[in-house]
Amino acid sequence: MTLKLAIFDVDGTLVDSQGDILASMTAAFEAVGLPAPDRATVLSIVGLSLPLAVAELAPEVDAAGQARMTQTYKDTYAQLRISGGASPLYPGIAEMLDRLARIDDLLLGVATGKSRRGLTALLGSLDLNARFVTTQVADDHPSKPHPSMIHAALSEAGVDAADAVMIGDTRFDMEMAQAAGVRGIGVAWGYHAADTLTGAVAVAQDASALETMILKTLGGLS
């Protein structure tokens, strides 16, 4: 039996976290006395690791200020999670993951710009920790689109690149997949416009379509 691996991005792919992202980034800019960028600009950097995202959005702020913004973002996001609960899964995602998890030769993984603390808290609150055999986070790797996260996921799962697929909502996910020699599937409900997901073998419009694309792309599953 040849094992296959489906690697998922989190924010904008599995969960809709834009409210917390926008509120946290607003607080980060307030910490250095600046107005936050508009919604589209903030969401355009989702997928990058947080320090790089802050640097992209506030290049005029010095290193100490960017560090303060990064910490403020983390603290605000954590507080929002405590007070408001987990970001919600997109429609149909929970059921899709349940069905995929029942396929014996298909493994599931995560590659996210979240921190380990943030991902662990999110998956725990959604009762999803047992779903994923490998979870790669920004703490341990260069930012997307560097292929390090996918390389580590493949190694941990014992799966070849040809037998894996990366699922995400941003161009950074698709570029990371290409850099790692893995096929990429985009989702249209996330934070980057579908027409920016160049390099994707397909772009899904909903969870049902995504499930079909994963099975078709990997093939040979039992």
Results as ranks from 00 to 15, higher is better:
Asp140Leu: 13
Arg131Phe: 14
Leu106Thr: 08
Ile103Gly: 01
Ala111Ile: 01
Pro91Val: 05
Thr135Leu: 11
Ser87Glu: 11
Ala78Val: 11
Leu80Gln: 14
Gly92Met: 03
Asp104Thr: 10
Arg102Leu: 13
Val110Ile: 15
Gly109Asn: 05
Arg117Gly: 12
Gly84His: 13
Pro91Cys: 07
Arg116Leu: 09
Ser125Ile: 00
Ala86His: 09
Ala78Gly: 12
Leu97Phe: 07
Lys114Asn: 07
Leu97Met: 03
Ala130Glu: 13
Asp98Val: 06
Ser115Val: 02
Leu100Ala: 00
Arg99Val: 10
Asp139Thr: 10
Ile82Gln: 13
Thr134His: 10
Arg131Leu: 13
Ala86Asn: 10
Gln136Phe: 09
Asp98Arg: 09
Ser125Cys: 00
Pro88Cys: 07
Ala121Pro: 00
Asn129Pro: 10
Ala101Cys: 01
Gly113Glu: 05
Leu122His: 06
Ile103Val: 15
Leu123Glu: 10
Gly113Pro: 03
Ser115Leu: 02
Met96His: 02
Gly109Ile: 02
Gly85Lys: 01
Gly118Ser: 05
Leu89His: 04
Thr120Cys: 00
Gly109Met: 01
Tyr90Cys: 01
Leu128Cys: 06
Pro91Asp: 11
Leu122Ile: 07
Asp105Gly: 01
Phe132Val: 06
Leu119Lys: 06
Ala138Glu: 11
Ala78Phe: 11
Ser87Thr: 09
Ser115Glu: 07
Thr120Val: 11
Gly109Lys: 03
Leu100Trp: 06
Met96Leu: 15
Asp98Glu: 15
Gln79Leu: 14
Gly118Pro: 04
Ser125Ala: 15
Thr112Gly: 08
Ser125Pro: 02
Glu95Arg: 12
Asp104Val: 10
Tyr77Val: 13
Ser87Tyr: 05
Leu122Ser: 09
